[in-house]
Amino acid sequence: MPVLHNRVSNEELKARLMDETFRRVTISFYQYFPIVNPQEFRDVLYRSMNELGVFGRIYVAKEGINAQISVPEHNMEAFRSFLYSIPHLDGLRLNIAVDDDGKSFWVLKIKVRDKIVADGIDDPAFSMERKGKYVNAREMNELLTDPNTIVIDMRNHYEYEVGHFDRALEVPSDTFRDQLPMAVDMMRGNEDKNIIMYCTGGIRCEKASAYMLHKGFENVFHLEGGIINYAKQTKEEGLDSRFIGKNFVFDNRLGERITEDVIAKCHQCGQPCDTHTNCANDGCHLLFIQCPSCAAEYEGCCSKECHETIHLPLERQKELRQGTDNGQHIFNKSKARLRPRLNEGKF
């Protein structure tokens, strides 16, 4: 029986990745479809993809599959043949990254989860079989010219901050499960409007569109393939991009530039900037936006406190991370917690 998980250290895997002489293609895809035995399906995926040298992360659940991976370019046809041999995945659209060096992943991880998107929905009457109408890039642009259209961004604040569609509404929450009921509440009284949901690759907005229909809305649309596919289509068809700025992505790149517009600001000095980074302090790792000047001044840290911490002896840093005499707070990506943390750290 072959090993169905990785046993090599991350350091060695990263070194192997950098030594590769061939190109990799970064791909994302998802599909809602019933999977009777997710663990068995997961093992089948792992065996075949591992043989093809696929890296990345894949989530499998009874409701479907969600994947962000990189595939050796010379194995792309073999990968497509395998994927399309699976019922429900034949001909599936693959979102190929537009701004990528193929070095985003160095190991293959396939996990079984309760859902491919945590939604908090416990209504047994809810079904993904009835969902909003797909719109492509051209249709999206046309609908955006209609004053009867409302556009809802189903991503988190740190994604919305660096790039979004013109006129798009932000749902002020950091979890998809909270955003769903909030979006419904925000749209009450607009049942006659065209409501377009969008997200990064389509997986969240597709479920959101189904939820809106479930809650009684009728004219619900969702952007097919999300921002990733929209950017690809506008480029191929020579369309104007109504998405402005950068598309946040969940790999080492932390963003794909869609237009040259920089609509965000450095969280430390306020200068135009849309480069996300994680705080260099191992006890923090806050995700925030930092310009090159502040990156040099703070040495990649989000605050004065973290900047001081990285210059402490390593043993002292380990003590702080373990909670011994820990003078730091635990911070996440929450919008509410982000600003106070950064404001405290200004020199």
Rank of each mutant, 00 (worst) to 15 (best):
A210E: 04
A295T: 11
P147D: 14
E297K: 13
D123H: 03
K193A: 10
T324C: 09
E139K: 12
G202I: 10
R188W: 00
Y32E: 14
K265R: 13
R337K: 14
I195A: 03
D101G: 00
L143T: 05
G91A: 10
T149F: 03
Q179C: 06
N75V: 04
N141R: 06
K318F: 09
A67P: 01
E159A: 06
K111H: 05
V8A: 12
N281K: 07
R316D: 15
V171F: 02
H214D: 04
I58M: 12
A61K: 03
D261A: 12
I69K: 08
L312V: 12
T26K: 07
E224C: 11
S70R: 07
M197L: 12
A336K: 11
C266S: 08
M187E: 07
T149Q: 04
T145L: 11
N10P: 10
N136M: 09
P313W: 10
T26I: 05
P172Q: 00
D100R: 03
D101W: 01
C273N: 11
C205P: 07
E305N: 14
Y230M: 08
F55V: 14
E299W: 09
K62D: 13
L108C: 05
N190W: 02
E73C: 07
N332Q: 09
V249F: 00
M182N: 03
N278L: 15
T234H: 09
A137R: 09
Q268L: 15
L92D: 11
G226Q: 02
Q271W: 01
K235M: 12
V262R: 00
C284G: 06
C306I: 12
F250Y: 04
R253Y: 02
Q268N: 14
D123K: 00
I263H: 00
E305Q: 14
D119F: 02
F79D: 01
I263Y: 00
L239Y: 10
